[in-house]
Write a protein that binds this DNA or RNA. Sequence first.
DNA 1: TTGAAAGCGCTAACAA
DNA 2: TTGTTAGCGCTTTCAA
Lengths: 338, 338
Amino acid sequence: MNIREIAKAAGVSVATVSRVLNHPETVAENTKKKVQRIMEEEEYTPNWFARGLNFANTNTIGLVIPQLVDPVYSEIVKGVEDVATRKGYIIFLCDFANDQTLEKMYFEQLARRRIDGLIAVSTRAESKIFDTVTENNIPIVLVGGSSHDLGFSMVKVNYREAAADATRHLINIGYRKIAMICSDHTDPNSEEKLQGYRLALHEAGILFREEYLKIAEDKMETAYLAAKKLLEIEEPPEAMFVATDNMAIGVMDAVKDKDLKIPEDVAIVGFDNIQISKMVEPRLTTVDIPLHKLGVYGARLLFDLIESDVSEKQQIVLQTKMKIRKSCGHKERIGELF
Amino acid sequence: MNIREIAKAAGVSVATVSRVLNHPETVAENTKKKVQRIMEEEEYTPNWFARGLNFANTNTIGLVIPQLVDPVYSEIVKGVEDVATRKGYIIFLCDFANDQTLEKMYFEQLARRRIDGLIAVSTRAESKIFDTVTENNIPIVLVGGSSHDLGFSMVKVNYREAAADATRHLINIGYRKIAMICSDHTDPNSEEKLQGYRLALHEAGILFREEYLKIAEDKMETAYLAAKKLLEIEEPPEAMFVATDNMAIGVMDAVKDKDLKIPEDVAIVGFDNIQISKMVEPRLTTVDIPLHKLGVYGARLLFDLIESDVSEKQQIVLQTKMKIRKSCGHKERIGELF
DNA sequence: TTGAAAGCGCTAACAA
DNA sequence: TTGTTAGCGCTTTCAA
């Protein structure tokens, strides 16, 4: 059923039907009613492609993420979707499974489909990976940082300061032998986090010790192993700052398996404040990253670009804050039901 | 840059360019080379909509889920995406936030966009909600059950049997005062789970006790409250079967907050085997639902429908299995690193 | 092996 | 307020 058949059935021209669809206020009440009734009866839905051929925009955005099955990213996705839906946009979701080749393929695929805008979450891609997208003048917003300076609009947090805060907290409550289990290059912000850790040590006049730094993939399993090794060195640390909550959970397991107590023997601070962090035992002290907000602001930034057609780059930095719980040995329990 | 400009630049007709794109074997080697070079140089990508106007299929599927920020659903989504990507399809992700009005809106939106197929996860929608989709002859696959019999192809597990298994396990290891904290209607399978629980009790000759059944929304918080109440009745249960791991985590908190020990005072069995369940203390005994597989099989079923154009309905039931961990009081620890 | 031209379903400029 | 019609960018039939 196409517009011509509807027009014939209603005894009007295709132009009138089109008007009912797109500018209903310009058509007489009676005609409109009649056409609408026919469309209803015939269950007519205009052809999306024919429409797209005439309109510039597709009301579609692409959302490219490293991996969906990670609460960090699914919360960001949710934030983006909340805004997009309200705007009448729909999302192409692309999980590139931490595989840069796949990521590039998605960018090309999305550009071909004429998305109105692209949000790339925690990308490690270099500038030229985005070429197909930029060539098509598709606005891009980065969310959660990137490992290169790409000159796009971006929403992120200050990972360095946040990491420094976490380390400072450990220092403030009396620790000096503080190790860091850092994520590897799969986390585009690992470098910043490491800088923050070193900064806080430096401020406090604590010497950075090579043997107190372990780099591991952002996985519970690898963090578990890294923590085990850390606990077996000559003078093991009394506290650990772990680059992601995900890893911190693995670290907690390692500590327990060594028959050490948290926080009495080893204090632990994580990063991200994913939901699980307040469910493990003991509750994990961590840095709250406003994940949902990252998504929301990212989407807003993108729609600003799409709608205004201005290509002024913006950088939004959101606030983080420490979530003090039991795993870091703070004296009082800061009460939270969960 | 459109096909006409490419044609002019290459000194051929648009038909030839189109052929290079769609039936390269029918064009002379030299012409093809030349056209391809020009396309390369000009970074030409054919207009998706113009193409869609001529082709029947869009290489796009819709995926509608109750909420993304729930590990149960994100794992299913991942399963679907793994298959879709390999097939060259891309996904419209729609999270309807447990809001049926929104769900319906998404169905309409997706039908309008001429998706090739639809996967609805754990839907509670009635038949007529799908009307726009079925009218457009778009194949539908349900994943993870539904609350109505809609006559679509479906991938699910036998929730009744799985729940019965969980309850039987508690019975087998010696419990008789077994309560159930059941999810409410937001979980389309809550009814089946309840039936399983009652079935197992019945088999063992244990009387069903109204006061041992609590219905709660599928949230940690509400499950927490339900469990608290359950522990305050005259003859509190010694074991609890909880309809989702998510809720079980809340229940565990409630038990701990009552200064009771798990599993010594109260044994707990969950449902789903989400990742967190093996990270909480004590590790949660639960029923493993093959979430990723649900997604994979759902997608395969859908592509069968899309490609074969046969509309034979299929029902696939996947196997579940008990994951015995510490929370249910089993004597030996079934070792798992995490 | 290639080109000319019709047509996919819609929108909007222009005319009435 | 409504109708006629050109055109969006592509594919494909038919003819050369």
